[in-house]
Simulated assay, not measured.
Amino acid sequence: MHTPTLTILAALLTALVTAVLYAVWHFNKNIPGLRLWMLSFLCSLVFTVSLLLRGWLPEVVGVVISQGVVALGAYLCLLAGRSYMGLRPFSHLYAVAGIGALLALSVVFTLVYPHLGMRFVLMGVGSGVCYLLTARTLAVGGIHRVPARYLLAGVLCLHGLFVLLRPALFALGGAVPDGVLEGGLMASVSQFVLLEAIVATVLLSFGALILTNEFITSELRHLAEVDPLTSVFNRRAFFTLLDKAVSSTQRTHMPLPVLVLDLDHFKTINDTWGHRAGDDVLRHFVDLALRCLRKEDVMGRLGGEEFAIFLPNAGAQGARAVAERLRRLVESHPAVAGARSIPLTVSIGIALCGPGDAASAALQRADEAMYLAKQRGRNRVEMSGSAEPDTASAAVATVA
């Protein structure tokens, strides 16, 4: 297959990929980086079209267009990767300065000191570095947990290395000063480069679509597992995780502390200040609770103002210490709704889930301990099986 035919094929394929990515972005505009990837492929399309039109364009115009869109496309790819990973973009001033310097040098090596090899070097260095940086940006999170990112990162890395080494291939093929590629070896090199570009286009578009699917799947999982108001696990997801943690205790023979927490007089808060203030109180409470927890601790909302927490590898004393710290923190930090300060306390029940216990049974015992805390005056911590009042806890809340 001769070079013009490959160029036409590359242009058609890039146009198709750009159209597909635009359609996906049009209906999923919340996916980070997708619009930038679409624009990056659009730059590739402009580049392939400029190759087809190079016989009808002044040489310097064709060089400026080719160099500009290749550099811009690689930079947009880097921005897309950073956007997908939630990283801040680079300052565009550096990109404008870099691309401007690239174009100026390209004009110099076209009009002042004609040198096709140097133009290949300029085209390869900037874009190759951007592709390698994008690969480094995406290769985070663990290959077993997010394989799609590593797949795309691998393709970007190989493509970036090829782009950096591409000038050496043309040097081996032999390019004449006026930019016309001659000879069988040069034609073969040119065809090989176009084939690599076609394969890279297919694989990169495939990777971008896989990342789109990864993001959508993650969002759906988030909606299915996370309480939309407080952003902790919902009841169903919490029970699933608790069952897994209980299964782990069967192997390690270490008891798993389970806490049930209920905000005191929450109905009064809703009736007095309104449901919007009640929502603010729930979010405020969760923020305070998360301050007391480790990364491995799991918190969920069972419903209304009732929450549950399990603490792997904490033990009875560790669980009581966490519960007391949380109780004091809630008591000393009233919620703020607008200009109003809303006093807040919490009652906490603790149960230990040992080997052979069921998760539901442990949660039930923690719930009973929490109701015991309510009966003994609220704003206190009770351990399942404790018969005496917990003198370490303060019963300062007034029963409604």
Rank of each mutant, 00 (worst) to 15 (best):
S386E: 15
R35Y: 09
Y113I: 15
D227T: 00
L172W: 09
P343T: 04
L105K: 13
C292L: 03
P114T: 06
N28Y: 07
T3P: 07
D279Y: 07
M254H: 11
W273L: 02
I350S: 01
L185W: 07
Y371Q: 05
M254G: 12
R291F: 07
F310I: 04
Y150M: 11
R327P: 05
L133A: 13
D280P: 02
S218M: 03
V260E: 12
S50E: 03
I65F: 05
P255E: 09
L288V: 08
G274E: 11
T249L: 00
A80V: 13
L290K: 06
P32W: 09
A395C: 09
A148G: 10
L261H: 01
T272S: 08
T230E: 04
N313H: 02
E214L: 10
S66L: 12
G315C: 08
V70S: 14
T249Y: 02
C353H: 06
Y371R: 03
H159M: 04
L79R: 11
L111I: 06
M123T: 10
L21A: 03
L76A: 08
T212E: 04
G68D: 08
V61E: 05
L242Y: 05
L6A: 09
L256D: 10
G377P: 08
R376D: 14
L138A: 10
V260K: 10
G207L: 12
T345Q: 04
F170E: 05
A366Y: 04
V155Q: 06
M383V: 15
V381E: 02
M1G: 03
A277P: 02
R221S: 03
L172C: 05
Q67V: 14
G160N: 08
A71E: 13
I309Y: 00
V298F: 00
L181V: 13
G183P: 05
L194K: 00
A237G: 00
K244P: 00
A277T: 06
A308I: 01
L21S: 02
I269W: 10
I8W: 11
M123P: 08
R294D: 07
T230A: 13
P228N: 02
L156R: 15
A323H: 00
A23P: 01
A208W: 09
R328E: 01
G126R: 07
V96I: 14
L263V: 12
A74P: 03
L169P: 03
I216Y: 01
V322N: 01
D287H: 08
A337K: 07
